[in-house]
Design a protein around this nucleic acid. Sequence first.
DNA 1: GACTCCCTAGAGTATATACTCTAATAATAC
DNA 2: GTATTATTAGAGTATATACTCTAGGGAGTC
Lengths: 226, 226
Amino acid sequence: MKTRDKILLSSLELFNEQGERNVTTNHIAAYLAISPGNLYYHFRNKSDIIYEIFQEYEKLVDYYLDIPENRPLNLDDMTFYLESVFDGLWSYRFLHRDLENLLDRDQRLRNDYREFTDRCLAAISRIFEKLAEGGVLEPQPDTLRAAMSLNVWLIVTNWMAFLKTAHGEKASACLTLRELKQGIYQVLTLEIPYVTPVYREQVLELREKYRPTMPEQEGEREVSVG
Amino acid sequence: MKTRDKILLSSLELFNEQGERNVTTNHIAAYLAISPGNLYYHFRNKSDIIYEIFQEYEKLVDYYLDIPENRPLNLDDMTFYLESVFDGLWSYRFLHRDLENLLDRDQRLRNDYREFTDRCLAAISRIFEKLAEGGVLEPQPDTLRAAMSLNVWLIVTNWMAFLKTAHGEKASACLTLRELKQGIYQVLTLEIPYVTPVYREQVLELREKYRPTMPEQEGEREVSVG
DNA sequence: GACTCCCTAGAGTATATACTCTAATAATAC
DNA sequence: GTATTATTAGAGTATATACTCTAGGGAGTC
């Protein structure tokens, strides 16, 4: 693998594990056993590394959120979207951790992220619309659907932060993809009232699959996640 | 005012405006026109300042979220809770910005925050319960109510972050309390399906008050907030 | 061999940041 | 007044971090 790609890959890995703030360019170089000079030969600065990783993330999510125009959506589609989005979040989880600081430091990123958000919100809304076409959800007026989509976005993008802050320990390491996907339970909770009677049972069943299992057997404490 | 209190006050102000990461102890001292030595005479380190500010925040929110046990809750109560909570968020908004890093750097804060979250979630759930008693909301099973409360928490605590990232410009400064309170619109959106028919109209009316006004007259772009 | 181009090493730098140390000054107690 | 304590100034430090600069190796081409 090319050094440049190694840098991107390792940066992502380190950022995800330790947070961007705690990973310096020198750390990345040391981790790869290359010199700082080498790293800076491939990237002008740290921001450029982050920006490039963000672009990968953007591509991935855009790919996931591609919505077929020729047919309505069903429950399987919804499951796929939810699973995919949380997979993406997991793979690039550092981005949503220190987002505000990242955006403050890089205007390109700020603009791109804003547009990215808009695209995602539009996609979520469109998914709701097509789920209604497919008879899974009750149809809703545009404004309500938009507000709901925004709520979904808020839950999806911040579920991980909640998990990390709700943990007692450092939590950076001990978070799992499985836990993350309990966010799907939360999203489905939001949707329940809008599910058509025909699909109600199925959705509730699907939701159960993501129900948080009380994690700590020590009986110490439980996050009251329902 | 005592120097110690001035430090706390100015720190809060600077943290809110520029983010904790961007405000050094030297900045705080310079802002107050005191020496670094003086600052460190009053506080052992930066973490202690943050921790003390957090404790104020905790007290404030705990005070707001005190729930009368002798009567059910009505719509005015709900409005009060929402308004108060967003006021509190506004006053201490830096805390929710870089929370993960703050918690990583201070174990006390981590523990306290975890308990704080639990208390808030319990309070939200209790409010829903009492709103049901008051006939405002339909009663819900415990698990659903818990999951809903968590969704409310996610929306409330992350609405500001969304606003900041959705803005095109640096946004640190140009965010207003008024905009922040559009978060109430989002929370009420979540509650709509559970409002009893008797109160439906009133809640929708209340919600309208917080509807985001399309902000930029330049016709440039609009955050699709419904 | 010499030239070029891509890549790499590694010492080095400017700046920042959290924090320390000493000495002096103001406030208070006796 | 004097002793004691609380407060303050301000220079200074250790460490970190993002980044630079120079020198050179290796591979391909002529």
